[in-house]
């Protein structure tokens, strides 16, 4: 009888235990530094509320947004984007820009989007210019998605340098 009680208690306790999966943290991987003489200096980045945190955001097939429980950004997202935009070999006078980012996430179906607006900062602030970039993710998984997102930041950097001029 006593044995049965012990077994029951053990089974009861084992029901309370849970397995916690590991949390993966990501940094936007470095992209190739720009080769031209122009370099970008980020004055300010404003993130949409839905990405202004450390959870990686995934758009599900039904159109809803999912904040990942076990996949996190390892740095503030605005810091990461600024880091990639400012990555340059050029030593000329910097282009000071401010950005407002509307969308920056991947989707369950294998694509990444990056859209928003930017403008040059200065005494006479230039008008806002919008950008809307999208690309496919060649392989599955969060790491590949983050890599594709970093590539889009690189595209934006080229766009800004091209617009302001070498």
């Amino acid at each position: 009888m006593r044995l049965i009680i012990y077994i029951t208690i053990l089974l009861g306790l084992s029901a309370c235990s849970t397995t916690i999966p590991n949390v993966s943290n990501y940094l936007l991987p470095n992209i190739e530094a720009s080769s031209g003489s122009s370099r970008i200096e980020v004055a300010r980045i404003e993130l949409s509320e839905y990405i202004d945190h450390k959870d990686v955001v995934l758009e599900l097939d039904d159109g809803s947004l999912h904040r990942a429980n076990f996949h996190k950004w390892g740095e503030n997202l605005d810091d990461g984007i600024a880091r990639l935009l400012e990555r340059s070999n050029g030593g000329g006078k910097p282009i000071r820009v401010e950005l407002s980012i509307a969308r920056f996430h991947g989707s369950e179906s294998g694509s990444v989007v990056f859209s928003g607006k930017w403008r040059e900062e200065g005494d006479g602030a230039s008008p806002w210019r919008s950008f809307d970039l999208e690309s496919d993710v060649p392989k599955s998984g969060y790491a590949n998605m983050v890599e594709a997102q970093a590539a889009l930041v690189g595209e934006l950097r080229a766009k800004i340098v091209g617009a302001v001029g070498e």
Binding site: L58, H66, F70, S107, S109, G110, D136, S140, G141, N144
Partner: peptide
């Protein structure tokens, strides 16, 4: 706390 659901995994683009 209950078990949190695993995150959906992003697929490769078709």
């Amino acid at each position: 706390p209950g078990k949190r659901k695993d995150d959906p995994k992003p697929k490769a683009a078709t």
